[in-house]
Nucleic acid binder design. Structure first.
Length: 204
DNA sequence: ACCGGGATGTTCT
DNA sequence: GAACATCCCGGTG
């Protein structure tokens, strides 16, 4: 996975990140659900009100991991996209576990099925041990602690898409922007399709 | 199955 | 003080 691939607006990158791999040591997951967050024009984005201490990574170069802490106990992870300085990013919402499943089970005893191990933005961080210390980590360099890889599996030709999850009314109309993308029918997607969720019958 | 509440700390108003 | 890109558990049907 190259920095150039990520150096585009998150809305463009997001559906193409589907079916790519997140790798950390023995842990491997296939990305099956993401959300795009714009830099300046998206009231739901952490970048909307400009750079600060929490979101500094978003304003850095593309290809790094933006990790934030929320609800007093959870971490969520984003892939910083481009163009550089605009602070767009893609939230990783769900992965299908591919390797290191035993370790993930140990990290997430609450998961009842393997498909639940990484089915949610905070759950996948638990499974992969992602915390504040990985904020800013390079995903595309050599010998990185955590990496984004392409195993040749193409993204779905017709990704499912619908509104983003968990946005308050403060985000107003952004609540309705259809910026969540998923691999259609994958059991590891974080939640069932809400009304307004579009799934093409042209499933790959 | 679906729903409601509590946990818990950082950031912003 | 309130909000928060969430999750888990225990209630009820």
């Amino acid at each position: 996975m190259t920095r150039r691939f990520l150096d585009r607006d998150a809305l463009e990158v997001a559906p193409e990140l589907l079916n790519k791999l997140l790798v950390r040591g023995p842990l491997v997951g296939r990305i099956v659900e993401v959300e795009a967050y714009h830099g300046g024009l998206d009231p739901a984005s952490h970048a909307f009100r400009g750079p600060g201490t929490r979101n500094a990574t978003m304003f850095g170069p593309p290809g790094h991991l933006y990790v934030y802490f929320t609800y007093g106990m959870h971490f969520c992870a984003n892939v910083v996209c481009g163009p550089g300085g605009e602070a767009s990013a893609v939230l990783l919402r769900a992965l299908a576990p591919l390797a290191g499943v035993e370790l993930m089970r140990a990290a997430r005893p609450a998961a009842r099925r393997d498909a639940e191990l990484c089915a949610g933005p905070a759950r996948l961080c638990q499974a992969f041990g992602i915390d504040r210390s990985l904020d800013g980590a390079d995903l595309v360099g050599k010998e990185t602690e955590i990496a984004l890889l392409d195993d040749g599996t193409p993204p779905p030709a017709a990704p499912a898409n619908g509104p983003r999850v968990g946005l308050s009314s403060r985000a107003a109309e952004a609540v309705y922007w259809q910026w969540r993308f998923a691999v259609p029918g994958n059991p590891a997607v974080s939640r069932p399709a809400p009304p307004g969720w579009r799934t093409s019958h042209l499933v790959v």
